[in-house]
């Protein structure tokens, strides 16, 4: 179970808004188009974007995202920070690009597809149906 504060540590992110930073991350979503995020992100996803506008907080709150990582060294606007504190949405910033941040998160085990949920999509892109689900422990015969 990967928690947001471990991501902060591993990727050396700067914490701008620190509320709820010990929550568990369910997966990742990378997009700069708010409509896309509204349509497709999943609960407790970590969202990677370079948008800094206060609307990102509204979207994150609506979709119950676990936090927002703003890339390319961009700083959220004051209004955005204020809103994020109100809504208790963590905001983290980094100099890294989206591609790099996602790559490193992927290395930590964060995935962009909610596994086992969309069999149609999983089949199309070749993910085993039971991937990500805990495997039953085999009893060792004594």
């Amino acid at each position: 179970m990967l928690k947001l504060n471990r991501i902060v540590k591993e990727l050396n992110l700067r914490v701008i808004v620190a509320h709820n930073i010990d929550k568990v991350v369910s997966g990742g979503y990378a997009s700069d188009l708010l409509s896309d995020v509204i349509a497709h992100s999943q609960k407790d996803n970590i969202w990677i974007t370079l948008q800094t506008h206060q609307n990102i907080v509204a979207v994150a709150s609506l979709k119950e995202l676990v936090g927002i990582i703003i890339v390319n060294g961009r700083m959220p606007e004051d209004e955005t920070i204020k809103k994020a504190k109100q809504e208790k949405i963590p905001i983290l910033v980094t100099e890294l690009s989206t591609f790099e941040v996602v790559g490193r998160l992927y290395g930590l085990g964060v995935r962009g597809i909610k596994q086992g949920v969309s069999p149609c999509l999983s089949r199309r892109i070749g993910i085993p149906q039971n991937a990500g689900q805990p495997q039953k422990k085999r009893r060792v015969k004594s």
Partner: peptide
């Protein structure tokens, strides 16, 4: 917002 959704205006 429509400009932002077109990939500009950030």
């Amino acid at each position: 917002e429509w400009v932002r959704e077109l990939g500009f205006g950030a």
